[in-house]
């Protein structure tokens, strides 16, 4: 039986889009779901390059970046991402 492929949209905003060199990337992952830990440590480095992937991972661990999954700020790296989900990344900002 073939593993299911999931499609996830990852958006990069503001300075992250400059660092990454694009505003978004569509991921095709052979899995039914994955968590943010896998997204940052494995999937993104494989697409954006090892260094950039690691840098994003560190930004998240240092709470320097918002990671928003389907409109909800992710609590931790265990948050699940499924087919059709949208992950939005932006440097921390505030105000209102």
């Amino acid at each position: 039986m073939r593993a299911q492929t999931m499609k996830v949209l990852v958006e990069f905003a503001w300075t992250l889009s400059e660092k990454v060199g694009r505003k978004y990337v569509w991921l095709d992952v052979k899995a039914e779901e994955l968590n943010l830990q896998e997204l940052f440590s494995r999937i993104l480095p494989s697409i954006l390059g090892e260094d950039l992937g690691k840098a994003l991972n560190e930004l998240f661990l240092n709470k320097e970046v918002f990671v928003v999954v389907n409109g909800v700020i992710a609590k931790d790296l265990a948050v699940k991402v499924k087919d059709g989900d949208k992950v939005f990344l932006q440097p921390i900002a505030s105000g209102g």
């Binding site: 905003a13 503001w14 918002f66 440097p91 921390i92 900002a93 505030s94 105000g95 209102g96």
Partner: peptide, 13 residues
């Protein structure tokens, strides 16, 4: 973020 764009940094977010 505040220095760069103030509250305009959060609109899309």
């Amino acid at each position: 973020g505040f220095r760069q764009l103030g509250t305009n940094g959060i609109i899309y977010l």
